[in-house]
């Protein structure tokens, strides 16, 4: 499939899954998995910065429109989208010149992918949950929510990768 088309389909499927299914899922009243940042995780390494910014903004805004509070998903998704390549460099030591086309499990391996995904998910969730309550009061409560949600989101992202990542290169 054409890469741009693939990204578009992925965008739509992830947003739909998030707002129609996962936003209604919850465990113990605390936990709501956020799978949509998988879109940011999987963008090709060579995506130009400007495109990353615009896609991050659109993704966050789309989620915001359907989930109650304006701005919080936009802010945090845009943030991780902008810093993603720097985080990749920091966490995995991969620069834009390295020959890795796909940021999925197939090319990175399970450990490195989880490391990378976990880092970005954590940053995203820290921003998201602090912006949601918009205060540092009851920080313990917020931190607990961040940690639990990060773990659950990561599990969902991992399952999605196992189920849907294409196994072989298409030529």
């Amino acid at each position: 499939m054409n890469n741009n088309l693939l990204q578009l389909v992925r965008f739509l499927i992830l947003v739909a899954t998030q707002i129609l299914v996962l936003n209604k899922v919850q465990f113990a009243g605390y936990i709501n998995p956020y799978i949509y940042i998988l879109f940011i995780l999987l963008l090709p390494l060579r995506t130009p910065p400007l495109v990353m910014i615009i896609l991050g903004f659109l993704l966050g805004f789309a989620i915001d429109m359907f989930s109650g509070m304006m701005g919080i998903h936009t802010f945090s998704t845009l943030f991780v989208a902008y810093f993603r390549n720097r985080i990749i460099k920091l966490v995995l030591g991969i620069g834009p010149d390295d020959f890795i086309s796909d940021m999925g499990i197939r090319d990175l391996g399970i450990t490195r992918f989880l490391y990378y995904a976990g880092f970005i998910t954590l940053i995203h969730h820290i921003l998201l949950f602090y912006l949601e309550v918009f205060s540092f009061r009851q920080s313990g409560d917020t931190l607990l929510r961040i940690l639990l949600n990060t773990m659950v989101s990561l599990v969902f992202i991992f399952i999605a990768m196992i189920l849907f990542e294409r196994k072989r290169y298409e030529t």
């Binding site: 910014i53 903004f57 966050g60 701005g71 919080i72 802010f75 845009l78 918009f134």
Partner: peptide
Amino acid sequence: YPLLIFLLLEVFALNLIVRNN
């Protein structure tokens, strides 16, 4: 320019959060 656009959009998002809590 990417940094500037990034900052601009983040300010926009923050504005949304604060103004339309």
